[in-house]
Write a protein that binds this DNA or RNA. Structure first.
Lengths: 214, 214
DNA sequence: TAGATTGTTAATCGATTAACAATC
DNA sequence: TAGATTGTTAATCGATTAACAATC
């Protein structure tokens, strides 16, 4: 295992900052520099780069262009990654509309839902199919990754269906811990829990001393 | 500091499972039991509970009702938490439509956007106001928490505005690392990065051996 | 009682941070 | 050269896991 999960997230943050710097005309960056921009310590930045075999110039910092090329290689940005969305509710819809994936070589190619009234929706950038058509579609289009925005109560069943069809990675928006075989990758995004966690921490430090009544 | 971030997230997962168990008519649960359901080791479950002062019965496990009451107390579910949404785009819209917050004593009370055409939207459950009205609203309604679903390029400015108005916690959907004073809590949700991270890990284990041509 | 489960202390593990040699 | 920065090794820190005593 070359790298764990956190490094990868940080690498994506670096990329984001580096792109901005490039647009601003900068050519090189120091670890200190990039660290400040991404909320990471300079040592961590250097360690991350070193771990991915990225070399800088002693005294001269890192070349932004080279960094971006290398990071793109790490993420295999040479080939388009096709993704499907399962569950065209509020969040599913929002994700389908989102335009930002393309620039990172990710394309949402289709969506699926049980509700037939959604199959005719014309405002969407991709077609909505019946769940029956999912297995065949996944195989024929060699889809590896699915975004799952379905109600909690059917999340496990849909996940089983996806895995059965050959999906290797699932982004799950339901607040359920999916039971999946060890070779399947899951990313859980639970907006509700994140919000509650945030509120908890905000309350912890006391909310007095402000807005003290009319 | 009584607890770090991870415990809190796990506590929310426990709550979720416990609710389901309660609905199914169960009255007690063992650490082993709850751990399996939430993807956590039994030792971790016991340790978490112990850390929050939750007591079980040796041999008898934990009483589900008591657990749920205690967890609710930890999250101060006695008082409604008011939240605002800033940026009524795709994701902001989806979050406004989401019905699941209420049952956890969270209510989205208003939303804000710079685009005047959105102020008249009637399909939304809460009004959309101009950003000018935000500071006064936050103070008058004693809002502590904001969900920020604005374009990346204005994320920092909007965050500054929110903090200036008195917001203590921000849920940020832009792929930017916000620069904020130390007493402000930030939760970053970057769907794009999560997706790229997922694809990276799926690719790592090789996607051969399937769909090998027509 | 014997067996099972909690609750806590100790050990382990991994990630971050500190230190510093290498070098431009 | 002197100063600054990288790259790597060692130290620290925190979280998870293992072990086990307490006890129902």
């Amino acid at each position: 295992m070359i790298s764990a999960n956190r490094n990868i997230r940080r690498l994506l943050r670096y990329r984001n900052s580096l792109c901005k710097m490039q647009e601003l005309g900068f050519e090189t960056v120091y670890s200190y520099n990039l660290g400040r921009e991404t909320g990471v310590s300079p040592e961590q930045v250097r360690k991350d780069f070193s771990q991915f075999g990225i070399k800088g110039n002693k005294k001269g910092g890192y070349n932004i262009n080279e960094l971006l090329i290398t990071i793109r290689e790490i993420f295999r940005k040479d080939e388009l990654q096709k993704v499907i969305v399962v569950g065209v509710g509020n969040i599913g819809n929002a994700i389908l509309q989102y335009k930002g994936f393309q620039k990172n070589m990710i394309e949402i190619v289709a969506s699926f839902d049980i509700d037939p009234t959604k199959y005719k929706k014309k405002k969407l950038p991709v077609p909505v199919y019946s769940l029956d058509k999912l297995p065949k579609f996944v195989v024929e289009h060699k889809i590896n990754t699915a975004i799952m925005t379905v109600p909690e109560r059917v999340a496990q069943d849909v996940a089983d269906l996806l895995i059965e069809a050959g999906i290797k990675g699932i982004m799950n928006f339901a607040p359920t811990v999916l039971k999946v075989p060890p070779h399947i990758h899951i990313v859980n995004i639970c907006i509700g829990h994140e919000l509650e966690s945030l509120i908890y921490h905000s309350l912890q430090m006391g909310n007095n001393g402000r807005g003290k009544g009319s």
